[in-house]
Structures are given as structure tokens and as C-alpha cells.
Design a protein around this nucleic acid. Structure first.
Lengths: 214, 214
DNA sequence: GTAACAGTGTTAAATTTTTCACACATTGAC
DNA sequence: GTCAATGTGTGAAAAATTTAACACTGTTAC
């Protein structure tokens, strides 16, 4: 099997995808790694190296066809294949995810929203009904669920993650502030907002310090 | 001035902080890089190297004092100094941030919530009043604002970011799906949820492919 | 058709990041 | 007090990532 591609590369792919999408909207047909690098503020070399992990999508003397490259990166990232998602935790964050229609455009369809709060039972976000946790098992067994987003407080996240994995869900988008310890075959992507905020805080404090010293 | 510390290191610091906080809650007084590395699933070497960027916090033969190290990392990250934040965009995501009380515990206090939707005018999230955008300037001039979180659709983000910078705000927590082009002295931390989801999607698809091949 | 140009894919170099290894300071048992 | 054990700080090695360089292919203008 081919060599594994590093997460550093994978992390950049969605950004290429975003820029190519914008170029496409602007009616741009072709682009060179050089032009793209100027827009994205990365080196052209990195763009070429990154793309070449997946194959040669460009052509000497021409550059890259925007539409073609856009689609290819989409395929690589598994976009436009349908992914059924559920969101556990129907608080503001869960609702924000449920309301974000662009996910759906890309094939990530939220088909269920779950919570423990009985007050939310039966309410809807967009056309997605909020269900109680005791309905989870039957729900998952009735229809395939690819990805579960965890937006509940961290106290419950561990237990629920285990339940989800037992139900056969192998991809978890974790917004709870803890590291899930799950079997190796389960893919976890963490979004730790408070850690992101702390990084901002550091850079902010540090930049200030630098300038103060001058 | 000392050599700059890489973002790779900074990104890990909040995680150390989190684990140390948990140890503290569990009443653990001291810990070695080795024990911590086992819990965090990173190498002990990396922990020691990371910490040594900021100074020697440990002691040979003893390890690290949990409380002390916790506080020191807090200082490094600028936690527990008060940071006034405003959130632009009072949709679900903005409200989710406003409702998240742990930010406040760490010194990140959301003092204002702004939106363009007149229907939200005067409503409150926790005790934070939602204000209209035309009140922004007066608000910012009346009290210091350190950080602005941008949770509005990307169409407006660019313009608003510029306004914020003109008003003297130098740290932006950007949730909009675009890259802000701001003066160099402005610190931006991006949270691109759809890119995170695509990364999950890639890893999910790729893991499946790997196992299918076996 | 041809020649100058543009621009990829790719190999190699440079840089950054991570891991290893160990000298030496401190601890804790006796 | 002594001595084995522990465990940091750190310099050096290894690995990974990023950038540079360029041979060579396809493009475009004439």
C-alpha cells in the first residue's frame, strides 16, 4: 500500500478546496501553483508537494484546471458522498451545527439531534426533530449513521462516546473538553474551543509584549 | 529577545493545562514527565522540551509540582488575566459562546453581543444584552475590548473585521469561513468548523479504505 | 511549424520538530 | 550521612516537514 499521508497535509486540503471553490465561483478556469500560492500566502512548492501526494492533477505549461482540481480534492476528502450525521447535545452549539446548511450542501446531512433535556423533546431545529437519548439506539439501528458530533458537557461525553461506538459509529466529531479514549478503529476529530481561545490569548499577550519591549 | 516559540508548542500548552487542572482536582501534588506522558499519550521528552521553552519548572528526582506548573502555564497563556470579549453575531454559535461559563472562569469575559437582526435587539443571553451593530463603536469606546469573536456569515466578516481593527481591537477569534487579511499587528485565531469536518471525513474514508483492502 | 515561455512533478537541500540519551541534581530509604 | 533510585534539563540524533531548484513537458504567439 502507498505511504500514508501526514495529517499536516490533510489539514491543508480543505483550505485548498475552499480557495478553489471561490475561484470557481469567480469563473476562473485555470490557475498555477504560483498564483494560488500568492492568494493563499503559502509557498507554491508546498501546494505542488501537497497535491502530488494524491497524484498529478496539473499540466506543465498550463497549471491546474480549477474545476477538475476542485472535484478531485472533493473526492479525496470524501465530500459529496453522503454522510449521515447525528448531533448529541441540542444546546446552542448542537443547534448551530444543525442550522449550518453548508454542511448539507457538501453531503454531510444531519439526520438526528439528541438531548437529555425533556423540555426539548419534540422541538425542531430546521426540520430535525430533537429526540431523547433513550431513542438513540433504535434510531441508529434503523438507519446508517456515519458521524456523530458530541456537543454535550464533558461529564457525559465519555459514556456517550462509548455507547456510540458500541452502536457501530466509527467517526466522532468531539466538541467536549476531554480526550476520548476509544478503540483504534474509531476516528476522532477534536474541536476544543477553549484551547483555541488560549492559543489566541497567548499570541495576543505575546505580541503585546514584543511591541512593548521596542 | 529570546527566540520565538513555535505555534506547534503553543498549541500543546492548553492541553497540558487541562490535564494539570484535572490532576489538581484529583488532589495530585506532583507528577513526572513520564507519568504525564503516559496519561496524555505523548512522549515525556516532548513534555520536557515544551516546558523548557518557558523555563525549568521541574526538579530532578522530584518531577513537577502540579499546582505550580498549572499556575505557570496559566500565566504563560494569559489565563486569569481579565480579557474583555465581544461576540459579533448572536446566532446559535454566538449564543453558545456567550453561554459557555468556563471562559469566564478563566478570565475571558464576554461583555457584549452584537447582531444585525433587529428581532434580537434587547434580548439577553445570560446577562448579556444583544445590541445592534450601530451601537458597536460607542460600546467599544466606552470600555476596553481585547478580543472579538466573529460568528456571523462570511459575507459580512471581512468588513466587520476591518471595523473592529479600526476601533483598536487587536485579537480576533474568527469562526467565519474565510481568511481575514488584517494588519500584521492583529492576532487572528481561526476556527473553521467545516475544515475540521472535512479532515474527519478524510480520515474516516481513509481508515475504511485501509481496512477494506486487508 | 517553431521557438520562447510557463509551470508541473520531482529530487535534493534546508529547516523545523520530535525523540533519544545521559550528566547531574534531588529524593528517600536505611 | 550514605547510596541507590528518580527524573529533570539539555545537547545531539533522527525524523518529518517545508522550501528550493530544475529537468522536461506542454502551451502559445507568430
Amino acid at each position: 500500500m502507498e505511504k500514508e499521508i501526514s495529517q499536516a497535509v490533510i489539514r491543508r486540503m480543505p483550505r485548498y478546496y475552499r480557495y478553489l471553490g471561490e475561484l470557481l465561483d469567480d469563473g476562473v478556469e485555470r490557475i498555477s501553483s504560483n498564483d494560488l500560492s500568492a492568494r493563499m500566502r503559502v509557498t507554491a512548492s508546498q501546494i505542488r508537494q501537497d497535491l502530488n501526494n494524491f497524484g498529478g492533477f496539473g499540466q506543465q505549461g498550463y497549471g491546474y484546471n480549477v474545476k477538475y482540481l476542485y472535484d478531485e480534492i472533493g473526492n479525496i476528502l470524501g465530500i459529496n458522498q453522503r454522510h449521515n450525521m447525528i448531533v448529541i447535545g441540542a444546546g446552542n452549539l448542537g443547534q448551530a451545527l444543525a442550522n449550518y446548511v453548508n454542511f448539507e450542501k457538501r453531503g454531510f446531512v444531519i439526520i438526528g439531534l439528541f438531548d437529555v433535556n425533556p423540555a426539548l423533546k419534540g422541538t425542531c431545529v430546521r426540520d430535525i426533530k430533537v429526540r431523547m437519548m433513550d431513542e438513540l439506539e433504535a434510531f441508529v439501528k434503523k438507519q446508517p449513521v456515519d458521524i456523530a458530533a458530541l456537543t454535550m458537557p464533558k461529564e457525559h461525553a465519555k459514556k456517550i462516546a462509548n455507547i456510540l461506538v458500541d452502536l457501530g459509529i466509527n467517526a466522532i466529531w468531539n466538541f467536549a473538553h476531554l480526550d476520548l479514549e476509544l478503540p483504534e478503529h474509531v476516528v476522532v476529530e477534536n474541536v476544543h474551543l477553549s484551547e483555541s481561545l488560549m492559543q489566541l490569548s497567548y499570541n495576543f499577550a505575546n505580541y503585546k509584549k514584543l511591541t512593548d519591549k521596542k
